[in-house]
């Protein structure tokens, strides 16, 4: 059971890390600081606008695959993977 709780802690730590990025790209870059970021341009995109309509979505996709990959490693490390 000690092993289980260590495994669960690693999972929580990874989730917190991923959801921080999730929060920053959408809520901070896309909404709260949008006006500041809009002063910078990415091609024809204002940067804040780009995060709100493009960048946050790309980041979400990468985040899920990153989480899935890292969890596979954690599963192996704690010998928790499905047999």
């Amino acid at each position: 059971m000690v092993k289980n709780s260590d495994y669960w802690k690693s999972n929580i730590a990874l989730i917190v890390k991923c959801l921080s990025v999730w929060f920053v790209v959408s809520y901070l870059f896309g909404i709260v600081f949008v006006d500041v970021l809009n002063l910078v341009k990415l091609g024809g995109y204002k940067l804040g606008f780009w995060f709100a309509q493009q960048g946050s979505i790309y980041t979400f996709v990468i985040l899920i695959f990153y989480y899935a990959k890292k969890m596979n490693q954690i599963d192996e490390q704690f010998n928790m993977h499905e047999k």
Binding site: C18, L19, W22, F49, A52, Q53, I57, F60, I64
Partner: peptide
Amino acid sequence: YGGSVFLMGWTGGYVLLAM
């Protein structure tokens, strides 16, 4: 820009779902 709520809202939920 105001329409961004639908773009982020209807995709960001999958991050929550996956984790």
